[in-house]
Write a protein that binds this DNA or RNA. Structure first.
Lengths: 162, 162
DNA sequence: TATTGTTATACTCTATAACTATA
DNA sequence: TATAGTTATAGAGTATAACAATA
């Protein structure tokens, strides 16, 4: 902690955030078969991104996942087979495709998000109101900062409303 | 937001926390081959848990991962083969084993943690000092609340110092 | 008999490489 | 020729089931 400052430095907060992130990674990082969710962690990452960037093509999705086209193509195969995702022809280029979540896919992401928010809320309910208020303010600041940095290096298509 | 209250409710904060958690899941959820870390997400979950609960047996580790013994046994095979983990005979029961991180395993977890804290710090550096202070207070409250709930239902072995 | 851990088998996820179709 | 996407193949991760060893 910067002793001469009224405020904690980035590294101080990062250490604390890292511990919480690891908690969530262990808690939510399990595979599909045992978790309440009917999709794997990999499939869920696809759903999150396609939800945010509706109509994204496979190449761009691959970049955001930091994966490879063949892996993502197979992931899309399975998501399409179970009716969560849809491939459609691109309007601009006949060699590209557009990826969209189906209504079932949108509903599943909403369900998973709701279940996770509920598990978070159980912890948050134990906290004091002041701590909750501080956490909310801090998280909102983090989101804004993250968006600012992302916007700097990737103007890209429009971001989602959230 | 509870309009009649000075403080946000658990659900309000959960919604914001969920968005940030999804950001980190997409950012850090990639596989081993392309990420900077030489271990997969699954292997990293093992390392986190064994770091925290040194000497844990395979059965308990399996429960914490919400996985199955056969899967965890294979994971340990590979972690042991690359020298990050060690199986030793249990002192109390000859059908159990104790899992320990090797010095290399401990060093790897520390390296990954440091790299992730650095990537978090890049975002945190963009935030105002007041927002950082709020986030730190909120995260500390969250950790305390999480530990309190976990302690209620799982006394178990001693928790780590962090 | 119940518990701990491993092995056998099958399916998913991942990557590299080779391929088709389009620009 | 370069780019978008798919298919072939191999290794990692996962689960169910069957197994050996111990309590």
């Amino acid at each position: 902690m910067h002793p001469a400052s009224q405020f904690p430095g980035p590294a101080d907060v990062a250490a604390s955030a890292s511990v919480v992130a690891e908690l969530l990674e262990v808690l939510w990082g399990g595979s599909r078969d045992l978790a309440a969710t009917p999709v794997s962690v990999s499939q869920l990452r696809v759903l999150y991104i396609v939800e945010e960037w509706d109509g994204i093509n496979l190449r761009t999705l691959t970049e955001r996942l930091e994966s490879r086209p063949s892996s993502v193509s197979r992931l899309c195969d399975r998501l399409e087979a179970v009716g969560l995702l849809q491939r459609t022809a691109s309007a601009v280029s006949r060699r590209e495709l557009e990826l969209h979540l189906t209504p079932a896919g949108l509903a599943l992401v909403a369900d998973i998000r709701a279940a996770r928010e509920e598990s978070l809320a159980r912890v948050l309910a134990v906290m004091s109101g002041a701590d909750r208020r501080a956490l909310l303010a801090g998280l909102q600041g983090f989101r804004a900062a993250s968006a600012e940095l992302a916007g700097d290096r990737a103007p890209g298509p429009e971001a989602r409303t959230a």
